[in-house]
Design a protein around this nucleic acid. Structure first.
Lengths: 107, 107
DNA sequence: CTGAATCCTTGGCGATACTG
DNA sequence: CAGTATCGCCAAGGATTCAG
């Protein structure tokens, strides 16, 4: 990817997190490390492909770590890095807004 | 639009704000009402079409108001609604993250 | 100045099948 | 279990033109 977005900070952040699933993935990792299929179960709508791609992107951005336990069968855990912890507040605030939005539109 | 995203709050919020420009638009409206071309100047990359479409979407979501002053030439002002003010924190947090991100990647 | 209309391209994303 | 590889769709977005 590496599309040079010369824009401002909001644009940069959105380019990294703006996909359909990325911030949602992070929102689940905030609670602690998760395995691949664990994340799939938490997000019934996501495809295997997108989960992989988005996790790779977050990994490349140093927001998430990928740890492989060489057991049989293989076990892979994803967790937020220290940098990724910078997203805690983002997730919290967006989640809060989303909740309010759903409540409002339900009425 | 009204695409029924049955997902969780983060997914809902991202579906509304996840586009390339929407949150950026909001980030400029946080500082006060802005005119159409004023927004265009602030976002050199955006096309006329997308600015219109995204503003309409935000308007339909009751986050932004559109006020037409019947002068000649016409003057149109966009401003955040009370509901839209719920995005102040979102913008602030995302902006902060984006700034940190740019600083980190500059190093 | 603020759009609407049209056409076209891109890439985000899903579906499916295959693998260590 | 945790992926990779292909294929193809379609909505997001850009460029250009026309209009009140």
């Amino acid at each position: 990817m590496k599309k040079t977005v010369t824009g401002c900070s909001v644009e940069e952040a959105m380019h990294l997190l703006g996909g359909r699933w990325r911030l949602l993935i992070v929102s689940y990792l905030v609670d602690g490390p998760k395995r691949f299929n664990e994340l799939r179960r938490l997000m019934p709508g996501i495809s295997q492909r997108m989960l992989t791609l988005d996790l790779r992107a977050l990994e490349e951005a140093n927001l998430v770590t990928r740890t492989v336990y060489p057991t049989v069968p293989v076990k892979v855990e994803y967790a937020l890095t220290g940098d990724g912890r910078r997203l805690d507040k983002v997730v919290a605030v967006v989640q809060e807004f989303g909740l309010w939005l759903k409540a409002r539109d339900a009425a």
